[in-house]
Structure formats: C-alpha cells, structure tokens
Nucleic acid binder design. Structure first.
Length: 670
RNA sequence: GCCCUUGUAGCUCAACGGUAGAGCAGAGGACUCAUAAUCCUUUGGUUGGGGGUUCGAAUCCCUCCGAGGGCACCA
C-alpha cells in the first residue's frame, strides 16, 4: 500500500487561533483527503506545542497554570478546526498532537539519549555541557533576543522593552548541540536532494544561512529559569529547550521512543512537513541535524508556504485592524468556499492577499456561476427533458450522421480525452503542491462543458423528435463530466461534491472513489436524479460586505487610535535653518521667516511666535519644519510650511523644537 | 549596512531573446436549459524610469525609483 505522512506545524499554545492556523491545517486536510482517495494510507498530524517560557508567561497573565492555559488553547484550536470541517476521523486528521502528553515526554527523552549516544560526522560528541550567555532581564526572569530589547545610544547594556531597564549579561549552564559539525553534511544533502526544501527561493535562503557557518545550539535551560518543559534525561536541573522538544513531536506521535503510539516504521520515511516560511530554518537546519544525529531518516519534503496579507498586500495585524476574523468567515461563507479560496487564490509557496471582496468575487465567479450553475442547468434539463432520469448516451446507427451534423461542437471521444488529460494534469499538479494550477485545469473543463451545452442548444433539440438521442447523449455527457469533477474536487469541496453526488442520484461517496480509476461511462443510465438545489448560492456582494463592515467595526475603531508608519511618513518633517526673520507689519503675533531647507532657495514661512521670540534671536536656529504642508496665504503672504513648537495649553509659551547635535539643512525626520 | 526576490491591462498572474497573453472586473451582442446564468465580440499595457548589448529585449547587462524577504537559538 502507498503511504503518506503530512504534518502541519504544532501551533504554539500562547495565543488564540487565527487565519494562519486554519490555512495550513486546511491545506494539510485537502492533501490528506486527496491521498486517501487515491488509496494511500495517509497519516495527518496537527496539534499544539505546549512548553516554554512564553507559555508560562501567558498563563501567569491569564491567571492560570500552564497546564490550564495549554488545555484551553488546544481545545479552542480543535473547536475552530471543527467549525471549518477539519475533524479527527477517517477523512480528517489522525492525531491532534500535544507535547505535554506522557508519550511525547518518553519519546523526546529517548530522542535526546540517542543523539547524546552518537558522534557528529566529525567524530565529536553531539551534546556537550557549556554556558549559554545572553542579555537577561531580571524582572522578566528571561533571556532577551534582539527584537526584545533596544540598544540605546551611550548605554552599556541594552534595555528591556517591557521593563525599560538595562539588561544583565548573564551566563547559565546549558547543554549544547554541536550543530557546527553539520554544515557540510547538510549542504551536501540539500544539493543532492534539492526537492526536499521548497520553494526554491526559500531553499536558497537556507543554503545561504548554512554557508555563513553554523553555531552550536543551546538545547536546554536551567530548570530554575524555565521549568515548564521536558526534563533532560539524567539531569533534573535542566529542561529541554524549545526546538528539540517541539520538533521531535513529528516522530514521537508515531511511537518513536514510546509504546503508546505506533506507525513510525511505516510513516516516517514518507513525511511531508508544511511550515510557514518563518519557521523553515528550524525545520530544515536544526531538525535535520537532530535527525542525522539520532541516526534517523530525513523527511521527504519541507514546504514553506506564504502568508496571507490583507487585500492591499499589507501584513495583517491588530494595529492596522485588518485581521480576517474567523467568526465572520464562518458566519458568511460556506466552509467549502473558504477551502476553495485558500487553494485557488494563493499560489502555494507565495504570499497571497485575503480580502472579503476577493473571496466573494471568487465564490460568485468560480463556484456559483461556474461549477454550481453548470450542475443546476444540467440537472434541470435532465429533469425537464428526461423525466428526471439519467438518459442513455447511445446514438443509434441511423441517427449518427444526422446527430453529428447537429452536434458539431463535440464528439464523445473529444470530451473523454479532455477529461482524462485534465484528470492526469490535476493529479500531477496536486502531487507537486501546485493547487491553484490544479484547480485552473478543472475550471477549464467547466468552461468547455458550458460551451458544449450552449453550442448544442439542447432546448432546440428538445423540440425535435428525431433529435432525442442527440439530446440524451449531450445530457449524459454533461452529467458524466460533472461526476468526474465531483470526484476530483472532493478533497477541496467535500461537502459540495457530496451534495452534487446526491443530486445526480448516485449512492456512493466521492471520498471513496479513486480519481485514477475513473472510467468514462460508469455513470449508470436510468437512475433518478434528486431535488436540484443551488450548491453555491450567489452571494450578494454589496449586502454581505455591508454586514461584514458593520460587524468588524468595533475592532476597527480601536485600531484607529493608532496611525501606521505610512501615515506618519506622509508628514514630511525636515530640518530647516532660520536665515531671516522679521515682524509682519500690523500683526501682533506673526513673524515672517526665511527658512533654508537645503533647497534652491529658502522658504517663506509665517509663524505665530512674535509674542515670545524676538526676530533676531531666531536667526541661525535649526528648527523642525513640516515641509509638505499645503501652502496658504496669511495676511497676504504665502506660508510654505510650518515650524514645530511644543506647548501644553493654548496660552502657554511655545518652545520651538530644535537639535542638540549638528544636522544638515533639509534632513528628514523619521 | 550586506545579500536575495520582485515591479507586465483596473485586479490576480502567464510569456523569460523573436509580432505582449489568460482569468476576473468593464462595454456591446446572442441565447433562454440555468444561481441576472451561459456563449460570442470587445475596451484596456511605449511590460516602474533612464541608459546599454543585439538584426530584434518584458526577457540579458548597468543605473535610479518602488515593493517584499533573508542576515541564528523568538515560537
């Protein structure tokens, strides 16, 4: 039997489910359904990564124990998956992996022991004890990484972003993995098997990373600083650190190093890891080195997929208020529509844009007008012209010539060939992770059948007695094609294709039909079609968008208190030197200033500072100017900018913003 | 800062040295079996700007501008 193993990352249990979790898991679900349809024994793993300092902190913040925290997140994630049709059954995932389970502890410790037992390719011990040194924040009780602290001018130590206090240089006893001995082996493997890391651009990044040289990796933490983790075997003072623990889930779930689970021998050598591009390195460099160290096979493929950006191509985030909310998706869209969109809209491996409008457009164009309408027009005609029974495809000898004349657009062999090619191409694309292209192939077939129907004019054939056979054959061909498409599309549209199956009057389940075994003509004639209902009702774009906007509004208003960096950069703040200053006649407060912004000639700027600054005091000062303020006339004089000054109340004396260091005129403030 | 990728019709992308294409959106027409659907026709681009190599460049080279990403222990 053919075997397949696909994994999503196990999601870190410190935050609630979001679109990214749903996306990756949906893709894995689609792949699994497709492989099982084709007779593969497919194992599908998803789950949660439940250890580490960040979980400890998230738990503290929520007033929970770490275990309560991870139980909560794991159940939320499962619930969300179930909401979107991803469940643990014979068509869904095989295990919801959790790293806090006993079998994983045993397996991960076994993994550690194996690594420790073996030597590196250069003959050194894989694991040694040393000291991990880093910037440590005492109040946080944690080491800080580069993006968790800020370096301040003149300060000896960087500052913690949370506590705004200088960090300590601290070293802690740690076990190290001798990653530095693995550069050559890893590069050799990647060059020999480039298909193991995809897409290519990401593979090149990994190669570049390794070529820069690998440092040894700290793989444990002292229990007194992090205790929410798996104990290092034979050393109660240490717990295993993140990656060794988390990554090993892919094998412990299959029974590696434990007796509760099984399947390692069968599945592991067929492993395909789907990962976000942000964690590709850990799944190639670190994970592969660990596996080599433990003497295990490497996975077949590590595929880094892209991220969903918003409709404008910006990253999604709370501050922008552009996050796609799962409950809105759930409320307004069929699960199948979302699955289709995920696979059709994003070229797997690249980033994609996710907008509700794009989604609606896709659903209406492809699912409602395309697939859905083809099904309903075809079955409506079967009902109307054939008394609701699938007609015969046979055309008798005496009618052949006449029929051919009428149905010039299509002979049977042509559509059979088209379908078989499409099927083969679809499977080939699917096996190669090219889901959007695979779906395009199917939609070309849909267009072709629509054209065949329109060209053959069945409503006219129906009026002519001698054309009954031609009409029947045409409708049979259309329904038979739909049957094929239902089978092929089942992994992507599990619910819709089953409904289509039932409407055609077929008994079985498309999940159980291997697309490779589809044979033209196996649709039995004479079966009774069932009630025809729109599989994908058209979505009223304007109406639904309005509803979504209203529902999403609360979130957005909160976000509007912030501006983005783009907003800020719209304001062109520049350094200017005041070259000339004089009081504007007949005005109490107004000064006319000549400000040099490093441009061809100084700008004339009017400022209401005369009550507080005498003109001669200002000459030579460097000030901050809003350079792209729309020019306006004041007292008949054009002001070409604005001088920035600070004051608390309207009546307070303003203080002009200025510089202590030397700056060039025209320099931009950012 | 260094390195990589990318910039093609309103939108998403294809062509990767030989007369710029597809889908969606827009416009017009046909048709009525169908979810105002489908089918046909059609508008629309000096391929980010400039320079170069070539008989010929979206495609190769240089440069500028814009977008995205990578540069190690954060999952």
């Amino acid at each position: 039997m053919k075997v397949f193993y696909v994994t999503t990352p196990i999601y870190y249990a410190n935050s609630l489910p979001h679109l990214g979790h749903l996306y990756t898991t949906t893709v894995a679900d689609v792949i699994t359904k497709h492989k099982r349809q084709r007779g593969f024994d497919a194992f599908f793993l998803t789950g949660t990564d439940e250890h580490g300092i960040n979980i400890q902190r998230a738990a503290e913040k929520a007033g929970k124990t770490p275990k309560e925290q991870v139980d909560y997140i794991a159940s939320e994630l499962k619930k969300m998956f179930a909401d979107f049709g991803i469940v643990e059954d014979e068509n869904g995932y095989s295990i919801f992996m959790r790293t806090t389970e006993q079998f994983h502890y045993e397996g991960a410790q076994h993994f550690w022991r194996q690594i420790a037992k073996n030597k590196t390719p250069k003959g050194n011990p894989n694991i040694y004890k040393g000291y991990y040194e880093g910037w440590f924040c005492a109040p946080c009780a944690a080491f800080k990484t580069e993006d968790e602290y800020e370096v301040r001018e003149g300060a000896e130590a960087p500052f913690c972003l949370i506590h705004e206090k200088p960090l300590d240089r601290v070293s802690e006893e740690s076990y190290f993995f001798r990653l530095s001995d693995y550069s050559e082996v890893l590069l050799e493997i990647i060059h020999k098997h480039p298909e193991k890391i995809r897409p290519e651009a990401r593979r090149n990044e990994v190669i570049a990373f390794i070529e820069r040289g690998l440092q040894d990796l700290s793989i444990s933490r002292e229990r007194r600083s992090v205790n929410w983790g798996i104990p290092v075997p034979d050393d109660q003072n240490h717990v295993m650190y993140v990656w060794l623990d988390a990554l090993s889930n892919y094998i412990t779930a299959l029974g590696y190093g434990n007796k509760q689970k099984s399947g390692f021998e069968k599945y592991w050598k067929h492993a395909h890891h789907l990962v976000g591009k942000d964690i590709l390195r850990f799944h190639t460099v670190y994970w592969w080195a660990f596996l080599l160290a433990a003497g295990l096979d490497l996975p077949q493929v590590v595929f880094a997929h892209g991220m969903w950006l918003d409709a404008q191509g910006r990253k999604m985030g709370k501050t922008l208020g552009n996050v796609v909310e799962l409950d809105i998706l759930k409320k307004h869209f069929q699960v199948d529509a979302i699955r289709y969109f995920f696979l059709r809209e994003m070229v797997f491996g690249q980033d994609g844009n996710f907008g509700y409008e794009n989604l609606i457009d896709r659903v209406n164009a492809d699912l409602a007008n395309g697939l859905g309408n083809l099904v309903s027009r075809t079955l409506a005609m079967v009902e109307k012209y054939c008394k609701g029974r699938i007609p015969s495809c046979k055309i008798s000898q005496e009618n052949r010539i006449l029929t051919k004349h009428e149905m010039t657009s299509l002979d049977e062999q042509e559509i059979v060939t088209t379908l078989e090619h499409a099927r083969d191409e679809f499977i080939r694309r699917f096996d190669n992770f090219e889901f959007s292209q695979a779906l395009e192939v199917i939609w070309k077939v849909i267009a072709k059948v629509d054209k065949m129907i329109t060209d053959s004019k069945p409503w006219e054939l129906a009026k002519q007695q001698h054309q009954t056979e031609a009409l029947n054959a045409l409708l049979y061909r259309a329904v038979e094609t739909i049957r094929w498409l239902a089978v092929l599309l089942y992994p992507v549209l599990p619910d819709a294709t089953r409904r289509i199956y039932r409407q055609i009057g077929l008994e079985g389940d498309p999940a159980k039909v291997n697309p490779e075994n589809l044979r033209w003509g196996e649709l039995p004639e004479g079966i009774r079609i069932q009630k025809v209902e729109a599989v994908f009702p058209r979505i009223d774009k304007r109406g639904v968008m309005n509803e979504i906007m209203n529902e999403a509004k609360v979130e957005k208003q909160e976000a509007e208190d912030y501006i983005t960096i783009e907003d800020f950069l719209k304001v062109d703040l520049r350094v200017g030197e005041i070259k000339g200053a004089e009081k504007v006649p007949d005005a109490d407060k107004l000064l006319r200033l000549e400000v040099d912004l490093g441009e061809e000639k100084p700008r004339q700027i009017l400022a209401g500072l005369a009550e507080y600054y005498s003109p001669e005091k200002l000459i030579g000062r460097k000030v901050v100017v809003v350079a792209n303020l729309k020019p306006r006339k004041i007292r008949g004089l054009e002001s070409q900018g604005m001088i920035c000054a600070a004051s608390l109340n309207k009546d307070d004396i303003p203080a002009i913003a200025t510089f202590i260091e030397e700056v060039k005129n025209g320099a931009r403030l950012k």
